[in-house]
Each structure stands twice: as C-alpha cells, then as structure tokens.
Nucleic acid binder design. Structure first.
Length: 285
DNA sequence: AAGTCGGACAACCGCGACACG
DNA sequence: GCGTGTCGCGGTTGTCCGACT
C-alpha cells in the first residue's frame, strides 16, 4: 500500500511554467495568500498544476525579493562555512542568504562551488574515498564535518582542542537519536580559512529547546542552536553565523552575527572559539 | 551547418515530519 | 494511539542553451 499521490497526475500539467501560469499564481497569492493549503490552491487559482509544483514555483521563482544571478564571494564563503559544518541542509543555508532559495544554492553548489572546493583541497586528498553510507556523502570530495558523520572531512585540519571542550554531552544539550555531538573546528590546509561549528542535531532537541549564547565577542546572540564561523586571516575578519533553530526561525533578517569583526590572528580566534565553546556549554540546556 | 557535449537551472519525486480529526 | 492529509526538504532528473568539433 503506497502513499496516496498528492494530486491526480493524469490531470495536471507538468514541465516548465508559462508566463500566464506564473501571472495567475502570483496574482492569486498576492490577493489571497496561500491559505495554508497548497493542495487546494491550484484549483482556486485556476491552474492545472500540482499543489507541490505551485509551492515550488512560488518559493523558488515568483516570491518577492528573490535574488537571481551571480553569487558574491561573501555568499560563497557563507555556503562553504555552513556546508562544512552542517552538510547539505540547504534550507538552513538558504536562510543565511537573504533572497537565495535552497534550490538555487543546491544547484550552485552542485555545478560550481563543489568543483571550486575540490581545487582548494589538495589533490591527494581528493582521491580519498569515503565509504560512509550517506547518499550525498558519497558524492562529495570530502567528508562532512557534521556531527552526524563522525569523522572530519578530508582537506580540513582539525585544530587541537581539549577533548572535554569538544564533546557536548547529551544530558546537557539534548540529542538526536542519542547522539552527543561534538563541536568542530577545521583549518583549510594551505589557506587562511578557519571554520568551526556545530550541528543543530548536536545541540538541540526536536522541540528546539536548546539555548546557546553564541560566539559573539561580547555580543549576545540570543537563542539559536547552531553556530558556525569562518575566520579569514588574510583580512582579519571573523564571521559568525547563527544557523537557526529547529523551527527554522532566525532572529535577524540576514541571520548573520558578528560579521566582519576584526581579529589579529588565527590564534586569537582559536582561543576565542575554545573559550566560547566552554561558555556555550554552561548555558546549554 | 549540423551534431554532440556539458553546464546551468528548473522542476519533479519520494520520504519523513507534523498537524489534525 | 492511529490514520490521513499536507508540508517541507533533499536528491535526482529533465530541459534548455551555448560552446565546441
């Protein structure tokens, strides 16, 4: 017994959207909203489309403030950072990039950034194969640093941090399927980029109850269960992001904290990160 | 000019999570 | 507690189009 299809596939149009369909959908949603029911929407809007298709079209293309076109270096860096720490959680990554959709970022990663990244990672390490079972893991040139995947990804050099700071015990932070997730810090070999971060699974429960004070250099970031950062030693900039909580709620429109803070060295950042990991754990739970 | 290839992007599919009766 | 409907996400596929032969 399979699941009932979301719509009658024989009677819905598929394939590319015409300008007329776009106009109908946009017009309807602007006037009436989605009504919280995408399945019923196409009929009401006079469209012969599947509700899911309408939703996708709206979210990825018709919605106001959608940004199309080239990704900036800054956006690249944010994507690298977040991908390094949380993997292919495109919706979370998209939430950090105003105007970008998860589909956009996913496509951009698959077609461009992944290759760019491969060039950045030493070739000998590119050749290492991973045998982890995750579907997407096997398609990538490195292993994911997400705590869901226990080993650090290739091409990133773990920074030595006392083990008692690296392990977020489940009784403090909650866990997903009993997993106690570590924090991760990596320095990209032969580059000046330091990445660090945790996974929401590592420090949140399904009800999003975890409360962290983020690495913020004296700035309180409020509640969030995911934090990541990139330090660009060349430009002495630290970027810290809040990856949002389980509900997908983000405190700031751009979801970014501590952006462009000035720091003198990688060592300073390492110190800061270590210190704040400790503090975070004190606040956790 | 025609055919082929590959990149970019749009759209679809399947599944898990969630809400609600 | 269970079944059903819907949403949202991530992976995959399809299509278009420009570059190249």
């Amino acid at each position: 017994m399979g699941k009932a299809p979301c719509c009658d596939k024989a009677n819905v149009k598929r394939g590319p959207w015409s300008p007329e369909e776009d106009a109908k959908l946009k017009d309807y949603i602007e006037k009436h909203g989605t009504g919280g029911n995408w399945i019923a929407l196409p009929q009401k809007a006079g469209l012969r489309r599947c509700g899911k298709s309408c939703r996708l079209r709206w979210l990825n293309y018709l919605r106001p403030n959608i940004k199309h076109g080239e990704f900036s270096d800054e956006e690249d860096r944010i994507i690298y950072s977040l991908f390094a720490s949380i993997g292919s959680r495109w919706s979370i990554i998209a939430a950090q990039l105003p105007g970008r959709t998860d589909n956009d970022i996913k496509n951009y990663w698959n077609t461009k950034l992944k290759k760019k990244f491969m060039k950045m990672v030493p070739s000998s390490q590119n050749q290492k194969k991973t045998h982890q079972s995750s579907t997407y893991q096997s398609t990538l040139p490195f292993q994911i640093s997400s705590p869901l995947y226990s080993s650090p990804f290739t091409g990133y050099e773990p920074i030595s941090i006392p083990s008692n700071l690296l392990n977020c015990s489940s009784n403090i932070c909650g866990s997903q399927e009993g997993y106690a997730g570590p924090m991760h810090q990596y320095q990209v070999k032969d580059s000046n980029i330091l990445m660090f971060g945790g996974d929401q699974a590592s420090c949140s429960s399904s009800d999003g109850s975890c409360s962290n004070n983020q690495i913020s250099h004296g700035r309180e970031m409020g509640q969030s269960c995911l934090y990541n950062g990139v330090f660009d030693e060349e430009n002495h900039k630290l970027m810290v992001s809040s990856g949002g909580n389980v509900d997908g709620y983000y405190e700031k429109p751009n979801g970014f904290y501590g952006e462009t803070e000035d720091y003198n060295s990688l060592e300073e950042i390492k110190q800061l990160v270590s210190t704040n990991i400790c503090n975070n754990f004190n606040y956790c739970g």
